[in-house]
Design a protein around this nucleic acid. Structure first.
Lengths: 244, 244
DNA sequence: AGTGTTTAATTGTCTGACATTTTAAATCGC
DNA sequence: GCGATTTAAAATGTCAGACAATTAAACACT
Protein backbone atom coordinates (compact mmCIF):
# COMPACT_ATOMS: atom_id res chain seq x y z
CA UNK A 1 0.00 0.00 0.00
CA UNK A 2 1.66 3.14 -1.21
CA UNK A 3 0.55 6.71 -1.73
CA UNK A 4 1.95 9.45 -3.90
CA UNK A 5 2.81 12.58 -1.91
CA UNK A 6 3.19 14.53 -5.15
CA UNK A 7 -0.38 13.87 -6.20
CA UNK A 8 -2.74 16.78 -5.96
CA UNK A 9 -5.48 14.74 -4.33
CA UNK A 10 -6.08 14.85 -0.62
CA UNK A 11 -3.84 12.57 1.34
CA UNK A 12 -6.76 11.17 3.30
CA UNK A 13 -8.51 10.24 0.04
CA UNK A 14 -5.39 8.55 -1.27
CA UNK A 15 -4.94 6.57 1.91
CA UNK A 16 -8.58 5.56 1.94
CA UNK A 17 -8.24 4.37 -1.62
CA UNK A 18 -5.12 2.37 -0.84
CA UNK A 19 -6.81 0.57 2.03
CA UNK A 20 -10.04 0.12 0.12
CA UNK A 21 -8.16 -1.48 -2.75
CA UNK A 22 -6.52 -3.85 -0.32
CA UNK A 23 -9.88 -4.88 1.10
CA UNK A 24 -11.76 -5.13 -2.17
CA UNK A 25 -8.80 -6.89 -3.77
CA UNK A 26 -8.97 -9.60 -1.18
CA UNK A 27 -5.69 -8.81 0.55
CA UNK A 28 -7.58 -8.48 3.80
CA UNK A 29 -10.24 -10.88 4.93
CA UNK A 30 -13.38 -10.23 6.92
CA UNK A 31 -12.77 -9.41 10.59
CA UNK A 32 -9.08 -8.91 10.02
CA UNK A 33 -7.66 -6.05 12.02
CA UNK A 34 -6.08 -3.09 10.30
CA UNK A 35 -2.91 -1.60 11.76
CA UNK A 36 -3.60 0.86 14.57
CA UNK A 37 -3.91 4.52 13.70
CA UNK A 38 -0.42 5.20 15.00
CA UNK A 39 1.04 2.39 12.90
CA UNK A 40 -0.77 3.70 9.83
CA UNK A 41 0.74 7.12 10.54
CA UNK A 42 4.20 5.58 10.29
CA UNK A 43 3.34 3.48 7.23
CA UNK A 44 1.98 6.38 5.20
CA UNK A 45 4.11 9.04 6.89
CA UNK A 46 1.20 11.34 7.70
CA UNK A 47 -0.38 12.68 10.85
CA UNK A 48 -3.04 10.92 12.83
CA UNK A 49 -5.79 13.33 11.77
CA UNK A 50 -5.17 12.42 8.15
CA UNK A 51 -5.27 8.72 8.90
CA UNK A 52 -8.45 9.16 10.88
CA UNK A 53 -10.15 11.05 8.07
CA UNK A 54 -9.23 8.20 5.75
CA UNK A 55 -10.67 5.64 8.16
CA UNK A 56 -13.90 7.62 8.49
CA UNK A 57 -14.26 7.51 4.74
CA UNK A 58 -14.02 3.74 4.83
CA UNK A 59 -16.42 3.53 7.75
CA UNK A 60 -18.96 5.56 5.78
CA UNK A 61 -18.86 2.90 3.10
CA UNK A 62 -19.39 0.14 5.63
CA UNK A 63 -16.01 -1.30 4.76
CA UNK A 64 -14.65 -1.22 8.29
CA UNK A 65 -15.90 -1.00 11.86
CA UNK A 66 -13.92 0.36 14.78
CA UNK A 67 -13.69 -0.74 18.37
CA UNK A 68 -12.22 1.15 21.24
CA UNK A 69 -10.12 -0.29 23.98
CA UNK A 70 -6.97 -2.33 24.37
CA UNK A 71 -7.72 -4.95 21.72
CA UNK A 72 -9.67 -2.46 19.66
CA UNK A 73 -8.91 -1.00 16.28
CA UNK A 74 -10.38 -1.01 12.82
CA UNK A 75 -11.63 -4.29 11.42
CA UNK A 76 -12.71 -5.32 7.96
CA UNK A 77 -16.44 -5.54 8.08
CA UNK A 78 -18.65 -8.12 6.41
CA UNK A 79 -21.16 -6.31 4.23
CA UNK A 80 -24.60 -7.77 4.92
CA UNK A 81 -27.48 -7.92 2.47
CA UNK A 82 -29.44 -5.46 4.57
CA UNK A 83 -26.66 -2.92 4.65
CA UNK A 84 -25.99 -3.30 0.97
CA UNK A 85 -29.66 -2.82 0.24
CA UNK A 86 -29.88 0.23 2.48
CA UNK A 87 -26.94 1.74 0.63
CA UNK A 88 -28.56 0.90 -2.66
CA UNK A 89 -31.79 2.57 -1.62
CA UNK A 90 -30.00 5.71 -0.47
CA UNK A 91 -28.03 5.97 -3.69
CA UNK A 92 -31.01 5.28 -5.91
CA UNK A 93 -33.30 7.68 -4.06
CA UNK A 94 -30.73 10.43 -4.34
CA UNK A 95 -30.14 9.70 -7.99
CA UNK A 96 -33.84 9.91 -8.78
CA UNK A 97 -34.41 13.12 -6.86
CA UNK A 98 -31.27 14.94 -7.94
CA UNK A 99 -31.65 14.19 -11.59
CA UNK A 100 -35.36 14.93 -11.74
CA UNK A 101 -36.17 11.51 -13.13
CA UNK A 102 -39.74 11.57 -14.34
CA UNK A 103 -42.35 9.26 -12.97
CA UNK A 104 -42.78 7.29 -16.17
CA UNK A 105 -39.13 6.34 -16.46
CA UNK A 106 -38.89 5.25 -12.85
CA UNK A 107 -42.18 3.40 -12.97
CA UNK A 108 -41.27 1.57 -16.13
CA UNK A 109 -37.95 0.51 -14.63
CA UNK A 110 -39.59 -0.67 -11.49
CA UNK A 111 -42.16 -2.89 -13.12
CA UNK A 112 -39.74 -4.21 -15.70
CA UNK A 113 -37.55 -5.37 -12.83
CA UNK A 114 -40.42 -6.85 -10.91
CA UNK A 115 -41.67 -8.77 -13.89
CA UNK A 116 -38.19 -10.25 -14.11
CA UNK A 117 -38.79 -12.28 -11.00
CA UNK A 118 -42.42 -13.23 -11.53
CA UNK A 119 -41.64 -16.60 -13.15
CA UNK A 120 -39.14 -17.51 -10.45
CA UNK A 121 -41.51 -16.38 -7.74
CA UNK A 122 -44.33 -18.44 -9.22
CA UNK A 123 -42.11 -21.46 -9.05
CA UNK A 124 -40.70 -21.03 -5.57
CA UNK A 125 -42.84 -18.74 -3.43
CA UNK A 126 -43.28 -20.11 0.08
CA UNK A 127 -46.53 -20.17 2.08
CA UNK A 128 -44.91 -17.42 4.10
CA UNK A 129 -44.55 -15.17 1.08
CA UNK A 130 -48.15 -15.77 0.12
CA UNK A 131 -49.36 -15.04 3.63
CA UNK A 132 -47.50 -11.74 3.64
CA UNK A 133 -49.06 -10.77 0.33
CA UNK A 134 -52.55 -11.65 1.51
CA UNK A 135 -52.04 -9.73 4.73
CA UNK A 136 -50.89 -6.64 2.85
CA UNK A 137 -53.79 -6.88 0.44
CA UNK A 138 -56.13 -6.99 3.41
CA UNK A 139 -54.40 -3.98 4.92
CA UNK A 140 -54.75 -2.07 1.67
CA UNK A 141 -58.52 -2.51 1.85
CA UNK A 142 -58.91 -1.05 5.31
CA UNK A 143 -60.93 2.15 5.37
CA UNK A 144 -59.22 5.31 6.54
CA UNK A 145 -55.78 4.20 5.45
CA UNK A 146 -53.62 7.20 4.52
CA UNK A 147 -52.05 7.40 1.11
CA UNK A 148 -48.65 7.07 2.62
CA UNK A 149 -49.54 3.91 4.55
CA UNK A 150 -51.13 2.54 1.42
CA UNK A 151 -47.82 3.03 -0.37
CA UNK A 152 -45.94 1.38 2.48
CA UNK A 153 -48.18 -1.62 2.19
CA UNK A 154 -47.72 -1.63 -1.56
CA UNK A 155 -43.96 -1.76 -1.11
CA UNK A 156 -44.32 -4.58 1.42
CA UNK A 157 -46.49 -6.52 -1.01
CA UNK A 158 -43.96 -6.21 -3.79
CA UNK A 159 -41.17 -7.03 -1.44
CA UNK A 160 -42.87 -10.34 -0.67
CA UNK A 161 -43.31 -10.96 -4.37
CA UNK A 162 -39.63 -10.39 -4.98
CA UNK A 163 -38.54 -12.46 -1.99
CA UNK A 164 -40.67 -15.26 -3.37
CA UNK A 165 -38.05 -15.83 -6.03
CA UNK A 166 -35.82 -17.17 -3.26
CA UNK A 167 -32.77 -15.44 -4.64
CA UNK A 168 -31.18 -13.08 -2.13
CA UNK A 169 -29.15 -11.29 -4.79
CA UNK A 170 -32.28 -10.62 -6.79
CA UNK A 171 -34.09 -9.46 -3.66
CA UNK A 172 -31.30 -7.06 -2.84
CA UNK A 173 -31.27 -5.56 -6.31
CA UNK A 174 -35.02 -5.29 -6.71
CA UNK A 175 -36.00 -4.23 -3.23
CA UNK A 176 -33.54 -1.38 -3.52
CA UNK A 177 -35.05 -0.26 -6.78
CA UNK A 178 -38.63 -0.54 -5.56
CA UNK A 179 -38.01 1.27 -2.31
CA UNK A 180 -36.25 4.10 -4.07
CA UNK A 181 -39.41 4.63 -6.10
CA UNK A 182 -41.51 5.28 -3.02
CA UNK A 183 -41.03 9.04 -2.79
CA UNK A 184 -42.38 9.34 -6.32
CA UNK A 185 -45.29 7.04 -5.58
CA UNK A 186 -46.13 9.07 -2.54
CA UNK A 187 -47.07 11.99 -4.74
CA UNK A 188 -50.08 10.11 -6.01
CA UNK A 189 -53.48 10.51 -4.37
CA UNK A 190 -55.24 7.16 -4.32
CA UNK A 191 -59.01 7.43 -4.54
CA UNK A 192 -61.14 4.56 -3.33
CA UNK A 193 -61.68 3.46 -6.92
CA UNK A 194 -57.92 3.49 -7.57
CA UNK A 195 -57.34 1.39 -4.52
CA UNK A 196 -60.00 -1.13 -5.41
CA UNK A 197 -58.45 -1.61 -8.81
CA UNK A 198 -54.95 -2.01 -7.38
CA UNK A 199 -56.18 -4.45 -4.75
CA UNK A 200 -57.93 -6.39 -7.47
CA UNK A 201 -54.69 -6.68 -9.43
CA UNK A 202 -52.71 -7.56 -6.32
CA UNK A 203 -55.18 -10.33 -5.65
CA UNK A 204 -54.80 -11.60 -9.19
CA UNK A 205 -51.03 -11.63 -8.74
CA UNK A 206 -51.22 -13.47 -5.43
CA UNK A 207 -53.66 -15.98 -6.89
CA UNK A 208 -51.45 -16.60 -9.87
CA UNK A 209 -48.39 -17.11 -7.68
CA UNK A 210 -50.31 -19.45 -5.42
CA UNK A 211 -51.34 -21.44 -8.48
CA UNK A 212 -47.68 -21.28 -9.60
CA UNK A 213 -48.84 -19.74 -12.84
CA UNK A 214 -46.01 -17.49 -13.91
CA UNK A 215 -47.63 -16.30 -17.11
CA UNK A 216 -50.77 -15.14 -15.36
CA UNK A 217 -48.72 -13.36 -12.72
CA UNK A 218 -46.79 -11.61 -15.44
CA UNK A 219 -49.96 -10.52 -17.19
CA UNK A 220 -51.40 -9.08 -14.02
CA UNK A 221 -48.15 -7.30 -13.29
CA UNK A 222 -48.16 -5.80 -16.76
CA UNK A 223 -51.67 -4.54 -16.15
CA UNK A 224 -50.69 -3.13 -12.79
CA UNK A 225 -47.74 -1.42 -14.45
CA UNK A 226 -49.99 0.25 -17.02
CA UNK A 227 -52.49 1.28 -14.40
CA UNK A 228 -49.87 2.78 -12.11
CA UNK A 229 -48.41 4.65 -15.05
CA UNK A 230 -51.83 6.14 -15.79
CA UNK A 231 -52.30 7.20 -12.19
CA UNK A 232 -48.88 8.74 -12.17
CA UNK A 233 -49.56 10.70 -15.33
CA UNK A 234 -52.77 12.05 -13.84
CA UNK A 235 -51.00 13.05 -10.66
CA UNK A 236 -48.29 14.83 -12.66
CA UNK A 237 -50.89 16.69 -14.70
CA UNK A 238 -52.80 17.75 -11.62
CA UNK A 239 -49.58 18.97 -10.11
CA UNK A 240 -48.73 20.91 -13.26
CA UNK A 241 -52.16 22.54 -13.24
CA UNK A 242 -51.88 23.51 -9.61
CA UNK A 243 -48.58 25.17 -10.37
CA UNK A 244 -50.19 27.42 -12.98
CA UNK B 1 -30.02 19.89 12.52
CA UNK B 2 -29.40 18.71 16.06
CA UNK B 3 -27.27 16.07 17.64
CA UNK B 4 -27.56 14.31 20.93
CA UNK B 5 -24.41 14.68 23.06
CA UNK B 6 -25.67 11.99 25.42
CA UNK B 7 -25.80 9.40 22.67
CA UNK B 8 -23.12 6.75 22.75
CA UNK B 9 -22.45 6.98 19.03
CA UNK B 10 -19.50 8.89 17.67
CA UNK B 11 -20.10 12.58 17.35
CA UNK B 12 -18.73 12.61 13.82
CA UNK B 13 -21.20 9.90 12.82
CA UNK B 14 -24.10 11.81 14.34
CA UNK B 15 -23.12 15.01 12.59
CA UNK B 16 -22.69 13.22 9.30
CA UNK B 17 -26.15 11.72 9.72
CA UNK B 18 -27.70 15.08 10.51
CA UNK B 19 -26.23 16.67 7.40
CA UNK B 20 -27.01 13.64 5.26
CA UNK B 21 -30.64 13.75 6.35
CA UNK B 22 -30.81 17.40 5.43
CA UNK B 23 -29.47 16.69 1.96
CA UNK B 24 -31.51 13.57 1.27
CA UNK B 25 -34.59 15.22 2.74
CA UNK B 26 -34.34 18.00 0.22
CA UNK B 27 -33.49 20.76 2.70
CA UNK B 28 -30.40 21.48 0.67
CA UNK B 29 -30.31 21.64 -3.08
CA UNK B 30 -27.60 20.67 -5.50
CA UNK B 31 -24.55 22.96 -5.50
CA UNK B 32 -25.69 24.67 -2.32
CA UNK B 33 -22.82 25.50 -0.01
CA UNK B 34 -22.66 24.02 3.46
CA UNK B 35 -21.57 26.24 6.33
CA UNK B 36 -17.80 26.44 6.64
CA UNK B 37 -16.06 24.03 8.97
CA UNK B 38 -15.67 26.72 11.60
CA UNK B 39 -19.37 27.57 11.44
CA UNK B 40 -20.27 23.91 11.76
CA UNK B 41 -18.03 23.71 14.83
CA UNK B 42 -20.14 26.43 16.45
CA UNK B 43 -23.45 24.95 15.30
CA UNK B 44 -22.75 21.51 16.67
CA UNK B 45 -20.47 22.66 19.44
CA UNK B 46 -17.63 20.29 18.59
CA UNK B 47 -14.06 20.68 17.48
CA UNK B 48 -12.97 21.09 13.92
CA UNK B 49 -11.46 17.58 13.69
CA UNK B 50 -14.83 16.11 14.51
CA UNK B 51 -16.57 18.22 11.90
CA UNK B 52 -13.95 17.28 9.36
CA UNK B 53 -14.37 13.59 10.05
CA UNK B 54 -18.09 14.00 9.50
CA UNK B 55 -17.53 15.80 6.21
CA UNK B 56 -15.13 13.10 5.03
CA UNK B 57 -17.84 10.53 5.67
CA UNK B 58 -20.20 12.48 3.42
CA UNK B 59 -17.51 12.94 0.79
CA UNK B 60 -16.98 9.17 0.75
CA UNK B 61 -20.63 8.77 -0.19
CA UNK B 62 -20.35 11.30 -2.97
CA UNK B 63 -22.84 13.54 -1.21
CA UNK B 64 -20.56 16.57 -1.09
CA UNK B 65 -17.49 17.92 -2.79
CA UNK B 66 -15.05 20.35 -1.23
CA UNK B 67 -13.13 23.27 -2.67
CA UNK B 68 -10.30 25.14 -1.13
CA UNK B 69 -9.78 28.85 -1.23
CA UNK B 70 -11.67 32.01 -0.51
CA UNK B 71 -15.02 31.05 -2.02
CA UNK B 72 -14.42 27.39 -1.21
CA UNK B 73 -16.25 25.12 1.15
CA UNK B 74 -18.35 21.99 0.97
CA UNK B 75 -21.07 21.83 -1.65
CA UNK B 76 -23.94 19.45 -2.17
CA UNK B 77 -22.97 17.30 -5.08
CA UNK B 78 -25.19 16.15 -7.90
CA UNK B 79 -25.02 12.38 -8.04
CA UNK B 80 -24.56 11.36 -11.67
CA UNK B 81 -25.72 8.11 -13.20
CA UNK B 82 -22.12 7.04 -13.68
CA UNK B 83 -21.18 7.65 -10.09
CA UNK B 84 -24.30 5.96 -8.81
CA UNK B 85 -23.57 2.99 -10.97
CA UNK B 86 -19.95 2.85 -9.88
CA UNK B 87 -21.11 2.84 -6.27
CA UNK B 88 -23.63 0.16 -7.03
CA UNK B 89 -20.97 -1.99 -8.65
CA UNK B 90 -18.60 -1.59 -5.71
CA UNK B 91 -21.28 -2.47 -3.19
CA UNK B 92 -22.58 -5.42 -5.18
CA UNK B 93 -19.13 -6.80 -5.87
CA UNK B 94 -18.24 -6.63 -2.23
CA UNK B 95 -21.52 -8.19 -1.20
CA UNK B 96 -21.00 -11.11 -3.56
CA UNK B 97 -17.43 -11.77 -2.53
CA UNK B 98 -17.86 -11.31 1.20
CA UNK B 99 -20.92 -13.47 1.48
CA UNK B 100 -19.59 -16.22 -0.75
CA UNK B 101 -22.59 -16.01 -3.04
CA UNK B 102 -22.51 -19.04 -5.28
CA UNK B 103 -22.28 -18.75 -9.01
CA UNK B 104 -25.74 -20.12 -9.66
CA UNK B 105 -27.53 -17.57 -7.50
CA UNK B 106 -25.66 -14.65 -9.00
CA UNK B 107 -26.05 -15.94 -12.52
CA UNK B 108 -29.75 -16.52 -12.10
CA UNK B 109 -30.20 -13.00 -10.76
CA UNK B 110 -28.20 -11.53 -13.58
CA UNK B 111 -30.14 -13.15 -16.37
CA UNK B 112 -33.49 -12.63 -14.73
CA UNK B 113 -32.70 -8.92 -14.65
CA UNK B 114 -31.48 -8.86 -18.21
CA UNK B 115 -34.54 -10.62 -19.48
CA UNK B 116 -36.55 -7.89 -17.82
CA UNK B 117 -35.43 -5.41 -20.38
CA UNK B 118 -35.46 -7.60 -23.46
CA UNK B 119 -38.99 -6.57 -24.55
CA UNK B 120 -38.25 -2.89 -24.04
CA UNK B 121 -34.94 -3.20 -25.83
CA UNK B 122 -36.60 -4.97 -28.76
CA UNK B 123 -38.98 -2.08 -29.06
CA UNK B 124 -36.55 0.81 -28.74
CA UNK B 125 -32.97 -0.28 -29.49
CA UNK B 126 -31.19 2.27 -31.67
CA UNK B 127 -28.94 1.51 -34.63
CA UNK B 128 -26.13 2.55 -32.30
CA UNK B 129 -27.01 -0.14 -29.78
CA UNK B 130 -27.15 -2.75 -32.51
CA UNK B 131 -23.81 -1.62 -33.93
CA UNK B 132 -22.18 -1.97 -30.52
CA UNK B 133 -23.57 -5.47 -30.13
CA UNK B 134 -22.34 -6.52 -33.57
CA UNK B 135 -18.93 -5.04 -32.88
CA UNK B 136 -18.62 -6.90 -29.59
CA UNK B 137 -19.77 -10.14 -31.19
CA UNK B 138 -17.06 -9.71 -33.79
CA UNK B 139 -14.50 -9.04 -31.07
CA UNK B 140 -15.57 -12.16 -29.24
CA UNK B 141 -14.73 -14.25 -32.32
CA UNK B 142 -11.19 -12.97 -32.67
CA UNK B 143 -8.56 -15.65 -32.16
CA UNK B 144 -6.16 -15.27 -29.28
CA UNK B 145 -8.55 -13.29 -27.14
CA UNK B 146 -7.87 -13.89 -23.45
CA UNK B 147 -10.66 -15.14 -21.21
CA UNK B 148 -10.66 -11.88 -19.36
CA UNK B 149 -11.01 -9.80 -22.52
CA UNK B 150 -13.75 -12.14 -23.65
CA UNK B 151 -15.63 -11.41 -20.43
CA UNK B 152 -15.08 -7.69 -20.89
CA UNK B 153 -16.63 -7.90 -24.30
CA UNK B 154 -19.47 -9.97 -22.92
CA UNK B 155 -20.22 -7.26 -20.38
CA UNK B 156 -20.07 -4.60 -23.09
CA UNK B 157 -22.49 -6.61 -25.22
CA UNK B 158 -24.99 -6.91 -22.41
CA UNK B 159 -24.52 -3.30 -21.53
CA UNK B 160 -25.61 -2.37 -25.05
CA UNK B 161 -28.58 -4.69 -24.73
CA UNK B 162 -29.64 -3.02 -21.51
CA UNK B 163 -29.07 0.48 -22.84
CA UNK B 164 -31.29 -0.44 -25.76
CA UNK B 165 -34.26 -0.20 -23.44
CA UNK B 166 -33.68 3.55 -23.45
CA UNK B 167 -34.36 3.83 -19.74
CA UNK B 168 -31.45 5.29 -17.81
CA UNK B 169 -32.78 4.09 -14.47
CA UNK B 170 -32.99 0.56 -15.78
CA UNK B 171 -29.51 0.85 -17.26
CA UNK B 172 -28.12 2.01 -13.96
CA UNK B 173 -29.71 -0.82 -12.03
CA UNK B 174 -28.86 -3.56 -14.48
CA UNK B 175 -25.40 -2.50 -15.52
CA UNK B 176 -24.45 -2.45 -11.86
CA UNK B 177 -25.72 -5.95 -11.36
CA UNK B 178 -24.08 -7.30 -14.49
CA UNK B 179 -20.72 -5.72 -13.81
CA UNK B 180 -20.66 -7.00 -10.28
CA UNK B 181 -20.96 -10.50 -11.68
CA UNK B 182 -17.78 -10.19 -13.67
CA UNK B 183 -15.33 -11.44 -11.05
CA UNK B 184 -17.36 -14.63 -10.86
CA UNK B 185 -17.52 -14.94 -14.62
CA UNK B 186 -13.78 -14.48 -14.83
CA UNK B 187 -13.28 -17.78 -13.07
CA UNK B 188 -14.61 -19.61 -16.08
CA UNK B 189 -12.29 -20.90 -18.78
CA UNK B 190 -13.91 -20.44 -22.16
CA UNK B 191 -12.89 -23.08 -24.70
CA UNK B 192 -13.28 -22.35 -28.37
CA UNK B 193 -16.45 -24.43 -28.39
CA UNK B 194 -17.90 -22.48 -25.47
CA UNK B 195 -17.17 -19.24 -27.22
CA UNK B 196 -18.71 -20.36 -30.47
CA UNK B 197 -21.90 -21.29 -28.69
CA UNK B 198 -22.03 -17.99 -26.80
CA UNK B 199 -21.33 -16.01 -29.95
CA UNK B 200 -24.10 -17.93 -31.64
CA UNK B 201 -26.56 -16.99 -28.92
CA UNK B 202 -25.38 -13.39 -28.90
CA UNK B 203 -26.02 -13.27 -32.63
CA UNK B 204 -29.49 -14.67 -32.13
CA UNK B 205 -30.18 -11.99 -29.55
CA UNK B 206 -28.90 -9.20 -31.76
CA UNK B 207 -30.91 -10.54 -34.69
CA UNK B 208 -34.06 -10.69 -32.60
CA UNK B 209 -33.60 -7.17 -31.32
CA UNK B 210 -32.93 -5.91 -34.82
CA UNK B 211 -36.17 -7.56 -35.94
CA UNK B 212 -37.83 -6.03 -32.87
CA UNK B 213 -38.90 -9.50 -31.83
CA UNK B 214 -38.97 -9.42 -28.04
CA UNK B 215 -40.10 -13.00 -27.61
CA UNK B 216 -37.28 -14.43 -29.66
CA UNK B 217 -34.77 -12.25 -27.80
CA UNK B 218 -36.13 -13.56 -24.53
CA UNK B 219 -35.88 -17.15 -25.68
CA UNK B 220 -32.28 -16.70 -26.73
CA UNK B 221 -31.48 -15.00 -23.44
CA UNK B 222 -33.03 -17.89 -21.54
CA UNK B 223 -30.88 -20.29 -23.48
CA UNK B 224 -27.80 -18.20 -22.83
CA UNK B 225 -28.69 -18.18 -19.15
CA UNK B 226 -28.91 -21.96 -19.05
CA UNK B 227 -25.69 -22.35 -20.96
CA UNK B 228 -23.77 -19.94 -18.76
CA UNK B 229 -25.10 -21.74 -15.72
CA UNK B 230 -23.79 -25.03 -17.08
CA UNK B 231 -20.37 -23.56 -17.78
CA UNK B 232 -20.27 -22.07 -14.31
CA UNK B 233 -21.14 -25.39 -12.70
CA UNK B 234 -18.36 -27.10 -14.62
CA UNK B 235 -15.87 -24.42 -13.59
CA UNK B 236 -16.91 -24.77 -9.96
CA UNK B 237 -16.50 -28.54 -10.11
CA UNK B 238 -13.09 -28.29 -11.72
CA UNK B 239 -12.07 -25.84 -9.04
CA UNK B 240 -13.33 -28.15 -6.31
CA UNK B 241 -11.37 -31.05 -7.79
CA UNK B 242 -8.18 -29.03 -7.99
CA UNK B 243 -8.58 -28.19 -4.33
CA UNK B 244 -8.63 -31.83 -3.32
C1' DA C 1 -8.23 50.36 -18.04
C1' DG C 2 -5.28 47.00 -17.04
C1' DT C 3 -2.08 44.64 -14.14
C1' DG C 4 0.30 43.08 -10.31
C1' DT C 5 -0.09 42.78 -5.12
C1' DT C 6 -2.11 42.16 -0.94
C1' DT C 7 -5.41 40.28 1.96
C1' DA C 8 -8.89 37.47 3.73
C1' DA C 9 -11.40 33.16 3.79
C1' DT C 10 -11.34 28.40 3.55
C1' DT C 11 -9.84 23.72 3.43
C1' DG C 12 -5.71 20.51 4.25
C1' DT C 13 -2.22 18.94 7.44
C1' DC C 14 0.50 18.59 11.64
C1' DT C 15 1.41 18.38 16.68
C1' DG C 16 0.38 17.46 21.19
C1' DA C 17 -2.67 16.79 24.71
C1' DC C 18 -6.42 14.66 27.29
C1' DA C 19 -10.79 11.69 27.73
C1' DT C 20 -12.88 7.26 27.29
C1' DT C 21 -13.14 2.49 26.76
C1' DT C 22 -11.56 -2.03 27.02
C1' DT C 23 -8.49 -5.75 27.94
C1' DA C 24 -4.75 -7.83 30.26
C1' DA C 25 -1.60 -7.93 33.85
C1' DA C 26 -0.39 -7.10 38.53
C1' DT C 27 -1.49 -6.92 43.13
C1' DC C 28 -3.74 -8.00 47.33
C1' DG C 29 -6.32 -10.59 50.68
C1' DC C 30 -7.37 -15.01 52.23
C1' DG D 1 -2.90 -21.23 45.20
C1' DC D 2 -6.97 -18.62 43.91
C1' DG D 3 -10.45 -15.22 43.47
C1' DA D 4 -11.36 -10.37 43.60
C1' DT D 5 -9.73 -5.90 43.04
C1' DT D 6 -6.69 -2.57 41.34
C1' DT D 7 -3.63 -0.88 38.09
C1' DA D 8 -1.54 -0.27 33.76
C1' DA D 9 -1.47 -0.24 28.91
C1' DA D 10 -3.37 0.20 24.36
C1' DA D 11 -6.48 1.88 21.41
C1' DT D 12 -9.96 5.07 19.57
C1' DG D 13 -12.53 9.64 20.32
C1' DT D 14 -12.21 14.54 21.07
C1' DC D 15 -10.16 18.99 21.65
C1' DA D 16 -7.15 23.14 20.86
C1' DG D 17 -4.03 25.66 18.31
C1' DA D 18 -0.88 26.33 14.73
C1' DC D 19 0.73 26.59 9.99
C1' DA D 20 0.48 25.51 4.85
C1' DA D 21 -1.88 25.81 0.46
C1' DT D 22 -5.26 27.55 -2.40
C1' DT D 23 -8.38 30.72 -4.25
C1' DA D 24 -10.98 34.86 -5.21
C1' DA D 25 -11.78 39.41 -4.25
C1' DA D 26 -10.13 43.95 -2.93
C1' DC D 27 -6.62 47.17 -3.59
C1' DA D 28 -2.87 49.93 -5.36
C1' DC D 29 -0.04 51.38 -9.00
C1' DT D 30 1.00 52.60 -13.56
Amino acid sequence: MKIDPKSSADLSAQIAKAIRDAIVGGEMIVDERLPSETELCDQFDVSRSTVREALKRLAAQNLIRTQRGATGGAFVRRLSYDEAQAQHVTTSTLLLSMNAVDFETACEARFALERACAPLSAERRTPDNLATMRAEIHRQGQPGLSDERFCDSDVAFHRALVDGAGNPVLSYQLAGAVEAMQPLMNMITFTQRNRDQIINLHTQIADALEAQNGVRADTALAELSDYTLTLGRQAMEARANRAK
